[in-house]
């Protein structure tokens, strides 16, 4: 199997789906510009031209409606937001219409649109370019929300989304774009609602979506040096959520730490914690801990930014406190994108 970078896997998934299905098109601000959304739309644009890969005026809410209206008569749009924060402008169409369409119109029609949103974070992207909208959108029945961390999952989830009947919000963390992984050349679908066990362990379960899957893995390396065996789960999609795999793991290890790229309150981490309380209470040996950004908007200054986001160190530290290990971390470990220098 070849190794591809995350952005290359996304590109390949889109191109292969578009070859098979002429109803798929890609639209969004900058999808046809020389950078092609971090390279993810370059090949599609080259291959399929301006008819199927095109720029749009600045109209996030209207264009979401446009995508739904085209899907209602047979198209399969891929809508790209170079920063997922702009999806708040489209919240009405996404929440009041896309999510509810099939249900409130009696189940006869569906609007299978794939909405890609990129989570900025890092290099001082600040308050409105660093946040991840996954928890908010996952609140609403009718949407699927996927948060692939690895190249093969990004490709596989895109394949499933573009074959299905449900509107999908796919959030891609920019920090993942240059990371490599094995990716099958063929189109191998990854089902929504199936978690990936990244590492098996005995003492504690760490659940981390998107970028936090990497950080959780790196935290588990640190923990191994401290004599703690951590099981690491990547849910891959947070709606639907693979409750069974998470519950089974927590029942096995008896301990849970959830790391997330978004805030604790009312978020994904809270949801997983509630799941453990409801379904694995009798197996828990210690309280559940959440490791999330601090409860303020994302700051810009490097020192504040480092303090704001979870890192392998803070995840590992939380795990050590849960297992009540004596070991203290000797050194701090920076986040996975320490060497990031753009593009933005």
């Amino acid at each position: 199997m070849r190794r591809l970078k995350y952005w290359q896997a996304i590109s390949e998934g889109l191109v292969q789906c578009m070859e098979k299905d002429a109803s798929i098109f890609i639209a969004g601000g900058g999808v046809d510009d020389p950078r092609g959304i971090f390279g993810t739309t370059l090949e599609a644009h080259k291959r399929f031209g301006a008819e199927r890969v095109f720029d749009i005026p600045n109209c996030e809410n209207a264009f979401t409606g446009v995508a739904l209206g085209s899907a209602a008569v047979g198209k399969r749009p891929v809508v790209v937001h170079a920063r997922n924060d702009f999806m708040f402008l489209a919240a009405d169409q996404l929440i009041n219409l896309a999510a509810k369409w099939k249900y409130m119109f009696g189940g006869r029609t569906s609007v299978p649109v794939l909405f890609r949103g990129i989570v900025g974070r890092g290099w001082g992207q600040g308050a409105t370019h660093s946040q991840s909208t996954h928890s908010m959108f996952a609140h609403f029945p009718g949407l699927y929300v996927a948060t692939p961390a690895f190249p093969d999952d990004a490709k596989g989830l895109i394949v499933t989304a573009l074959r299905g009947h449900t509107p999908v919000i796919l959030l891609e963390n920019r920090a993942c774009y240059e990371l490599e992984g094995d990716v099958p050349e063929e189109m191998v679908p990854v089902q929504f609602g199936k978690a990936r066990v990244l590492r098996e362990g005995r003492d504690i379960t760490i659940v981390g979506a998107s970028l936090m899957a990497y950080e959780a893995l790196r935290a588990s390396d640190i923990l191994r040096e401290c004599g703690v065996s951590a099981e690491v789960l990547d849910p891959r999609s947070i709606r639907p959520l693979d409750r069974e795999t998470i519950v089974a793991s927590v029942r096995k290890t008896g301990r849970l730490v959830v790391a997330d790229t978004s805030w604790s309150l009312y978020g994904f981490a809270a949801e997983v914690a509630a799941l453990a309380a409801e379904e694995a209470w009798d197996y828990l040996k210690a309280p559940v801990r959440r490791v999330t950004p601090l409860d303020c908007p994302a700051p810009v200054s490097k020192v504040l930014e480092e303090a704001f986001h979870p890192s392998p160190s803070t995840i590992a530290q939380a795990c050590l406190s849960v297992v009540k290990a004596e070991a203290a971390l000797e050194k701090s470990v920076g986040d996975v994108q320490e060497r990031f220098r753009g593009p933005y």
Binding site: A62, L68, G69, S70, N96, L97
Partner: peptide, 17 residues
Amino acid sequence: AAIMGETIAVAVGSAMA
């Protein structure tokens, strides 16, 4: 749809298709 103006854009989308 009950939300003001929502389906204006959606009709534009069908026209685009």
